[in-house]
Amino acid sequence: MDGFSSDFSAGGSGGKVDTGTIMEQVKVQIAVANAQELLQRMTDKCFKKCIGKPGSTLDNSEQKCIAMCMDRYMDAWNTVSRTYNSRLQRERARM
């Protein structure tokens, strides 16, 4: 994240940093941040669901559980996103 400010000032003395380049970089950073957020929350939730008592290895049934949990978490994420989006649309229409 500390590369962010330096990118903006990179062209400071000379011309401007290309707006398109900045927008591309911001988009990439947003995508990375969102992926990290999802990864972190998913790991948290699926660890809680699937690892009862941590053993010496991640055993087969735990791995199966984690795989299913990941898929269900994505389903849940998509349902939440869809529901929230249609709610926003409804509220916008009412205004």
Partner: peptide
Amino acid sequence: RFQQLVHQMTE
């Protein structure tokens, strides 16, 4: 902001 709230509500 939308994405953030989706993360939060999913959790």
